[in-house]
Write a protein that binds this DNA or RNA. Sequence first.
DNA 1: CCGGACGCCTGTCGGC
DNA 2: TGCCGACAGGCGTCCG
Length: 271
Amino acid sequence: MPELPEVETTKRGIAPYLEGKRILALDIRERRLRWTIESGIESQIIGNTIQTVTRRAKYLLFQLEHGIMIVHLGMSGSLRILPAYQPRQLHDHIDLIVENEHCLRLRDPRRLGSWLWHLGAINTHPLLKNLGPEPLEPGFDGNCLFKAAKNRRIAIKLLIMNSHVVSGVGNIYASEALFLAGIHPQLSCRDLTLPRYNKLAEAIQQVLTQAIIQGGTTLRDFSQADGKPGYFVNSLQVYGRTNEPCLRCQHPIQAMQIGQRMSFFCPHCQH
DNA sequence: CCGGACGCCTGTCGGC
DNA sequence: TGCCGACAGGCGTCCG
């Protein structure tokens, strides 16, 4: 699930409980996530103070005094703040206890998420060092999409879902942004003009910004840090709306597979 | 380098 | 009711 807006929502929900707090315990019940968590990681983390909680792409970064915890939510992960020592339920894999008796709890039914430990600067980590620009920060615009599209011939939807081109856009928001920009998802990225890329970049920013305001999108597993769902699910224009009328022109929304992922679009509004 | 397919996991849903 | 396959928000890896 979690794309940029869900991870950002999570970050905003958990940071006030964690920043400046010392880690008292790290209780790992299931180590077999996307990458099996090394035994012994606990001793390196416990006792550290969490200095900042930030986000890069879909990664949450916990800057400690010595090292960085890198957490990715995969397809089904969520993080919640709970009172310490609440009973755990199925798929609650990790508890991080900080002073003041707060617990950061990772739940991840499909275990495609990750919980990594990194010594050194964040941009030296192999998973993060080649990421594309943040779509909501300066440095991202239509021109950088246009340049990335040169010498490529993939569908435009795959271009904007490529984290090396722009980070944080996943399957939901790719479909939504392309609808907003009036661009057919299967169009070859080579055939888009710079003005259309400008429009697309703005559409990406608009969709992500609105989704963050709504606390992200909950389809099934995602929850905000306080347990509430993400309300942007009520604002989706095309995602998951196969055969329902386009909210702009009433034509039925179509679904098609692009790069092994389902894509949703209006055949009348998007070209 | 690029693009496409696969695999990692569990849960759910539709069809038979 | 049960079984089976398809599918689900991501993304690293492998292969051509």
